[in-house]
């Protein structure tokens, strides 16, 4: 349809590109104006919907026993292909890894840290917010099991520099979860030679989770209910925005594969009142208008 006026290049490739990223297929075809409109409108709508839901509304919970309504809404969101496919992959990773609390590591790592410390060291009372860096490392524990130990270097809310050792049994939140923050639980210890004694603990502490490990990870039922409670009507709005963005991208894919549905757009409008020429031109034959358009396009 209208291929004589629009160079669609390889329509299949353009369709795939348009599906993956709105506007990319049209950019490949050299239709920059349409690429700009599709990418601006669809991506903005999609991202706005996502931001309304704190970036949690796109998720694939398509396991056995999951409600079909959620699958339908996800299929609509999947019209914007790349995040949809990403969500399917994240769901697969999540089902494989589970929700276990992490008590051992493969390799040491350090991360920004924020939390509350409650510790008593002699006369020195350490209480309050601490922000800094946490260093964690895997070691063999007292009973030769794999455990995590670590150290916090940071500054308290009243400006004191602290360096605290964390005893065996540091616990981290699950590796994959739809939350950019990962909790940390640990005892604070005092080391003197080979002896160590517990002097306190860290509470409400968290380290950042990487984007790859939280974005589009499926929510658990409890997390889903919390999100509903937290967002209220915005939850539905976010869902509608992302679904409509996905459905609109289907129109964009169609346009990339088959060209504009009604024509180039320079043909006379058959609905124009008081324009008998337009009406007759529209009713007589398309080739006449096609020639006019081609002439107009080439001039």
């Amino acid at each position: 349809m209208h291929r004589s006026q629009v160079n669609l290049k390889d329509p299949l490739l353009a369709g795939v590109l348009a599906f993956l990223v709105p506007g990319l297929g049209h950019l490949y075809q050299g239709r920059r104006f349409k690429a700009a409109i599709y990418s601006l409108c669809i991506i903005s709508l999609y991202l706005y919907g996502l931001s309304l839901s704190n970036w949690k509304i796109v998720q694939y919970r398509g396991g056995p026993g999951e409600p079909r309504t959620e699958l339908l809404s996800f299929m609509a969101q999947c019209g914007v292909g790349l995040p949809g496919l990403f969500a399917v992959n994240q769901s697969r990773r999540f089902r494989r890894s589970g929700e276990q609390i992490v008590t051992s590591l493969r390799e040491p790592f350090s991360a920004p840290f924020a939390g509350t410390i409650e510790a008593q060291e002699g006369e020195d009372d350490l209480q309050g917010e601490v922000a800094g860096t946490i260093e964690l490392a895997p070691v063999a524990g007292r009973f030769n099991d794999a455990v995590i130990v670590g150290k916090i270097n940071g500054t308290t809310s009243d400006g004191r520099e602290v360096s605290l050792a964390l005893g065996e049994g540091v616990r981290l939140g699950p590796e994959l979860r739809n939350d950019p923050q990962r909790f940390v639980e640990a005892d604070i210890i005092r080391e003197s030679g080979k002896d160590e004694s517990r002097i306190g603990q860290i509470a409400n502490a968290h380290i950042p989770r990487s984007f790859w490990n939280w974005f589009a990870i499926p929510l658990t039922d409890a997390e889903e209910q919390d999100l509903h409670r937290e967002l209220g009507k915005l939850h539905e709005l976010a869902l509608v925005f992302t679904m409509i963005a996905g459905l609109l991208n289907i129109l964009a894919v169609w346009d990339a594969v088959d060209g504009p549905a009604y024509g180039y757009g320079l043909e006379p409008d058959p609905r124009a009142k008081g324009n008998p020429a337009a009406t007759s031109a529209a009713s007589s034959a398309e080739p006449a208008s096609q020639e006019a358009v081609t002439a107009g396009a080439t001039s």
Partner: peptide, 20 residues
């Protein structure tokens, strides 16, 4: 804004000419 985006994308898929 939702109606504006729907209008724009729908008609972009119908025509090629920017003014139309």
């Amino acid at each position: 804004p939702l109606a504006a985006v729907i209008s724009l994308v729908y008609n972009t898929s119908r025509y090629e000419d920017a003014q139309r």
